[in-house]
Computed example of a mutant assay.
Amino acid sequence: MPVAQINQQHIYFEDSGGDGLPLILAHGFLMDQQMFAPQVAALSPEFRVITWDERGFGQTECDGQPFTYWDSARDCLGLLDYLGIEKAVVGGMSQGGFLSLRVALLAPQRVLGLLLLNTQAGPEDPTHVEGYRLLMHSWVEQGLTDEQAQYVASIILAEPQQNAHWIAKWKARTNLQSLIAATECLLGREDITGRLGEISVPALVVHGTADNAIPVARAETLCAGLVNSQPLVLVEGAAHAANLTHAEQVNPPIVDFLRRLQAGR
Rank of each mutant, 00 (worst) to 15 (best):
L106Y: 12
G122R: 09
Q95G: 10
L116A: 05
L106P: 05
D146C: 02
G97C: 14
D146Y: 03
D125V: 00
V103A: 06
L135S: 08
V103N: 03
G92E: 06
T145K: 04
G92N: 09
Y132F: 14
N118C: 15
M136K: 12
T119Y: 03
L105T: 07
Q120S: 13
E141L: 08
G92H: 03
N118P: 15
F98M: 07
G131Q: 10
P126M: 07
G131S: 13
L101F: 08
H137K: 14
A107H: 04
L144I: 02
L144D: 00
Q120P: 14
R102Y: 03
A121M: 06
M136A: 14
A104W: 00
T127K: 00
G143R: 01
P108I: 05
E141S: 11
L144Y: 02
G143H: 03
G131R: 08
Q142P: 06
G122H: 07
L117C: 10
T145A: 08
M136D: 11
R102S: 00
R110T: 08
S94D: 11
N118L: 11
L134Q: 11
T127C: 00
L144A: 01
G97I: 07
G122Q: 08
Q120Y: 13
M93T: 13
G96E: 09
V103M: 05
H128K: 14
Y132H: 13
L99E: 01
E141G: 05
T145P: 01
G113N: 02
H128G: 15
N118Y: 14
A121S: 13
L99T: 01
L144C: 02
L134T: 13
L115R: 03
A149D: 02
Q95M: 10
R133V: 00
S138E: 10
Y132M: 15
Y151Q: 11
S94L: 10
S100L: 07
A149N: 05
G97A: 12
E147Q: 15
M93D: 14
Q142M: 09
L144Q: 01
L114T: 04
Q150H: 15
Y151E: 09
V140D: 01
L99P: 01
L106C: 13
G122C: 12
Q120V: 14
L99F: 03
G122N: 11
P108H: 09
R110L: 07
Q142E: 12
T145M: 04
Y151C: 04
D125F: 01
L144M: 06
L114H: 04
L112Y: 09
F98A: 04
P108D: 14
L116P: 02
T127R: 01
G131A: 13
E141C: 06
S100H: 05
R133L: 09
T127G: 00
P108K: 07
F98P: 03
N118A: 13
L112C: 15
A149R: 03
A107Y: 05
Y151S: 11
V129I: 09
L134W: 15
A121L: 07
L106F: 10
Y151P: 00
L114N: 03
W139N: 01
G143I: 01
S100Q: 11
L134F: 15
T145V: 04
R102A: 02
P126F: 06
L114P: 02
S100K: 07
S138C: 09
